[in-house]
Amino acid sequence: MITIALVSQKGGSGKTTLATHLAAKATQAGYVTCLIDTDPQATAAAWGDWRGKTDPEVITAPPARLARVIEDAQKLGAEFLVIDTPPFAEAAAREAVKAADVVLIPCRPRAFDLHAIQATADLIRSTRKAAYVVFNATPPRAPALIADASKMVESFGLEVAPMSLAERAAFNHSTANGRTAVETEPRGKAAEEIDQLWKWLCERASTPPQKHASGKAL
Rank of each mutant, 00 (worst) to 15 (best):
S164M: 03
W50L: 15
A23L: 03
V103I: 12
L81W: 00
L35S: 08
T175I: 13
R65N: 10
F171N: 03
R179C: 14
A45L: 09
A169P: 00
A205R: 07
C34W: 09
G48H: 06
S13V: 04
A91M: 11
P186A: 10
A191C: 08
I146M: 08
Q9W: 00
H212S: 13
T20H: 07
Q74V: 07
L35Q: 07
L123S: 01
L22S: 03
S155Y: 01
A93G: 14
L218P: 15
L6E: 05
Q28Y: 08
S206I: 07
A190E: 06
R65L: 09
Q9S: 14
A99E: 10
V7F: 01
G188H: 10
V103K: 03
K10H: 08
D55K: 11
I4M: 13
D101E: 14
I83C: 02
Y132G: 03
I105Q: 00
L18Y: 05
A205G: 12
A67R: 09
A121I: 00
A45E: 09
I117R: 00
T60H: 07
A116I: 01
N172C: 08
S8L: 05
A131Q: 06
A190Q: 06
A91Q: 13
V182M: 15
A119K: 07
A64P: 01
T38N: 07
L76Q: 15
G48W: 06
K53G: 14
P62M: 06
R108V: 10
A19T: 03
A5M: 01
P106D: 11
E159V: 00
T120N: 12
S174A: 15
A96N: 04
N177F: 14
A205V: 11
K10F: 01
T20D: 04
A149T: 04
E192C: 05
A100D: 02
A137P: 02
L6H: 05
I146L: 13
P186I: 06
P140I: 06
T127N: 12
P56K: 08
S155R: 11
A42G: 10
R68A: 15
K10S: 14
A131N: 07
S206Q: 15
W50S: 14
E57S: 10
F171P: 00
Q41T: 05
E185D: 15
P109K: 03
A89M: 11
K25Y: 05
W198F: 12
T207Q: 15
A64M: 08
V102W: 02
I124Y: 05
R65A: 13
I124E: 11
Q118K: 08
L6A: 07
K10I: 03
G52Q: 13
A67D: 12
H173L: 14
T20I: 09
V182D: 03
T207E: 15
P209Y: 14
T17G: 10
I83K: 02
K189S: 13
G14I: 05
P143Q: 12
R110Y: 13
I70Y: 00
L104E: 01
K53T: 11
